[in-house]
Design a protein around this nucleic acid. Structure first.
Lengths: 207, 207, 207, 207
DNA sequence: AAGTAACCGAGACGGTACGTCTCGTCTTCTA
DNA sequence: TAGAAGACGAGACGTACCGTCTCGGTTACTT
């Protein structure tokens, strides 16, 4: 297979990479994903179009990397050292989950994150390649934070050990994302709290 | 305001409408939503482009109507007369939910439905106008089937009356859609069953 | 052979055709042929690029048609009715040829004609397809004016009947074009006169 | 004036120069001038692009030098020592001219020479700078061969001393080039012979 | 039956963006 | 320190569609 000849990454211009990320995020925030064009990103970044096409296959891929970079920088800023963000473990599972789910709600309501995330989720749901990258790089880490906390809870006897931690995670995150994506109702802290409560207690009436 | 002049719906060609729906669904199935163009639909349907633009504002809108039409025809075929599809009430809430959730899984796994649904969900998450139509016309009816069954369960003492039926619905449907949309795991009957079980019983360990 | 589908010439926009011609000639005059781009012509003409590519295969083809149109209009203006331009026949062959050759010199020295003609001759010498069109449509008619006058001269006993009229024509026009194309010397009326004289009398010394 | 910094010619790599010439001529022969690119020449020659741009201003300039080099080598091979090629002087002007004009015809018909010459003539007719170099270095020496022979003929009384030798030269070469460039008729020995005859005798009928 | 509206298939139009190609410059690494 | 390698900013290429705008040619309602 005569692979179309890969460019030499070691000679890549960091300056251009940064400029492209900044331009991409700015344009998506300002004019929306659909109206953002590769041509526009290149122009705004002061970069040739080919410099974008050399390193990314599509504008969605550019935006995904730009967003990952943004998230990484934000995380680094928050977590001082580049360590992994972790869900707190105060011993009170419900309280801990509420805290993080509320934070997730806030993030999804932040227009700065909302627009690119929507666009990426949308594009990813159609383009499997991108969807995989989106899931692995952006979504999965978030989910596994929940997963680990729930495993800890199971070990501590705070959660039913028979439940698949992954399913438990989805029981919390799934409804949240559903409401966010389809705008089927208010997305606020109250909703996050209620979600935690009923995911833990179930729908069956207690005696 | 000189409203851009509405066409006379009574003189509309049913023949063309059908041909457009068929062409749209076929093209999306065959080549994917992104590669489907209004021009292509018109050509395949043997129709002028203007005939599409006269009645729909975008290809997404065409596809949504085409899909609604498809669903309506499928429902009519299944439900004999055009009555409203309803979730069965055998008295066993868990069994009833399992049944429908399994059916939903089958539907989402059916490539004939998968492609258009993904495309519409994607487009709708970006375009609020379309998203609203998508939600109201396609999603909401499905959700309310669950809602009504849960309300009945609450009335019969099979479900905690303190839970918002809408939240309960999302607790079941949200994780399912999440896994489907992001392809984060296998989407099968076992998953549907586990979902029902844990949504009902909760994550908290039982004594 | 799946001919790429010809556009319907009867629906062609005369307005656009004219605008394209004007823009093409203006740009070539102002900035030169090499710096003239299809994109630039389209922009200047207020026309979509596709409208150019729909009707012409290359910018050279556009310019050729534009130039032919210009020549046709100039001829019509000069010759009152659209009759064919003809070399005068005063009975004095040398005088008649001088007249026309001087006119040719003036034309080649006119920067308005010079730039496009050079460009077309250049492009045509490389692209055989275009070269053929250039020759047939632009060059040949000019040459045949000479050809006919020489035939008349032969009939009237003013010219050697043994000479191929085509060769005779080239004996007059060839040197002129050569000097023009390669700028190997001054191109003026004196040169035209000398050319006529020696083409008629030959290089051999007269007794 | 800060002359853009001239490279040190003494350190120039002869190896690269040769490789560039070979690559340029090969590519023009194989794929045509238009499809030949500086990038392609550099790649084929195993040379950096900058090495070309350091020494030549354009691909036409490269090709011109490559062609001059080719011609020089061919001449050296033919003329044993590097002496100047000269038109023979057998005393019979017509015969001598026929001989050289026939040779010119053969050269113009040789596809190895035809393609680059056409390209250079074309480019030169548009780009005055290059045109001047083309004329001086390639065309002029050829023309002056004729010029000198004609002067000799005049001195020997074989040619009208009143005729400008330059014009006489053009009377022979101009028609030939014209027919070659515009492909307006067959270019063969018969044409060369006829050209010589009528250039010498003129078009006027002899008593 | 003639007249008249408007929908229809068709497709040319002015545009925008695409993804590719080549230009001529600039930078980095190697011999 | 010249040269190979090739990334870069720039921008034209030719293509694909967009959404609008005429064009006749059918219908289907007036008069």
């Amino acid at each position: 297979m005569p692979e179309p000849k890969a460019p030499d990454a070691s000679r890549r211009s960091e300056r251009s990479r940064r400029a492209i990320f900044d331009a991409a995020l700015a344009l998506v925030s300002e004019t929306g994903y659909a109206k953002t064009t590769v041509e526009g990103i290149a122009a705004r970044a002061g970069v040739g179009k080919q410099t974008i096409y050399r390193w990314w296959p599509s504008k969605a891929a550019v935006l995904l990397d730009a967003f990952l970079d943004l998230a990484a920088r934000a995380a680094e800023e928050a977590g001082a050292t580049g360590g992994r963000t972790e869900l707190p473990d105060t011993g009170d599972l419900a309280a801990d989950l509420r805290l993080v789910l509320r934070a997730t709600v806030d993030e999804l309501n932040n227009p700065l994150y909302d627009a690119p995330t929507r666009a990426l989720a949308a594009e990813g749901s159609t383009d499997p390649e991108l969807g995989a990258r989106f899931t692995t790089a952006l979504l999965e880490p978030q989910l596994q934070v929940f997963g680990r906390r729930i495993e800890a809870a199971q070990a501590a006897g705070q959660a039913d050990p028979a439940v698949d931690p992954r399913l438990a995670t989805e029981l919390l995150v799934g409804p949240l994302h559903h409401r966010w994506l389809h705008r089927t109702g208010p997305l606020d802290h109250a909703y996050a709290d209620a979600l935690v409560e009923h995911a833990l207690r179930g729908l069956t009436p207690r005696p």
